[in-house]
Computed example of a mutant assay.
Amino acid sequence: MHRLFLFAIALFCLVLTQAEAADLASPVGTWRTIDDETGSERSVVEIAEVGGELQGRIVKIFLRPDEKPDPVCDKCEGERKDRPVIGMTFLWGLKPDGSSKTEWAGGAILDPKNGKVYNAKAVLADGGQTLRVRGYIGTPLLGRSQVWKREAN
Rank of each mutant, 00 (worst) to 15 (best):
V117I: 15
K113P: 02
E79C: 07
G128Q: 02
P112D: 13
K113F: 03
Y136I: 04
T102R: 15
G106L: 02
H2T: 03
E53Y: 10
G51L: 06
T38P: 13
K101S: 15
K116D: 00
V123W: 10
W31Q: 07
E20Y: 02
M1H: 15
D23V: 08
S99Q: 12
G128D: 03
N119L: 08
F12R: 07
A25Y: 08
E79A: 12
P84N: 10
F12W: 13
E46P: 02
K101V: 12
K60A: 07
W148T: 00
L124Y: 04
G93A: 11
P71C: 07
I61W: 05
T139F: 15
R42C: 03
K68L: 03
L141M: 12
E46A: 11
A21C: 08
I61C: 06
E37Y: 08
M1K: 15
G107W: 00
Q129H: 15
E151G: 08
R132E: 14
A8P: 05
S26Q: 11
P65D: 12
D66C: 09
E53P: 05
I109L: 06
G128A: 03
T102P: 07
E20M: 03
L110V: 00
G106P: 03
S26R: 10
E53I: 04
T130G: 01
R57Q: 02
D74F: 14
I9V: 14
T17E: 12
